[in-house]
Amino acid sequence: MSWLWRALAGPILWAAMFLLVYALHGAGCNLGWTDRPAPIADWHHMAMWLAWGAGLILHLVLIRVMPAGRGRPRQLITMGAWIGFVSTLVTLFPVIATSTCA
């Protein structure tokens, strides 16, 4: 079963990041973080950027450390890790550009 967890680690991290950033988005709008200036943009954007960036770094770590074994099991773990990375990169990309609470 440890093989299955390794293969699914990337997608699971994506799910967690998606949940975290979506929750930060909702909470920030409700708590008025857009009105609090930060060194760059506002705290709402900063919080989401930090979460997204940290998530991408964690994904890269998974890509590096998760693959184990040989042959097809190793390939599947590697593919799973990349699926997670690309999913987080693409689906949370809007935190870069889009307006937040409008």
């Binding site: 950033v21 988005h25 693409v90 689906t91 809007p94 307006s99 609470c101």
Partner: peptide, 12 residues
């Protein structure tokens, strides 16, 4: 729903 939330789900 706010634009950013729309964009998350549109990308996915």
């Amino acid at each position: 729903i706010p634009h950013m939330a729309l964009a998350f789900f549109s990308a996915a």
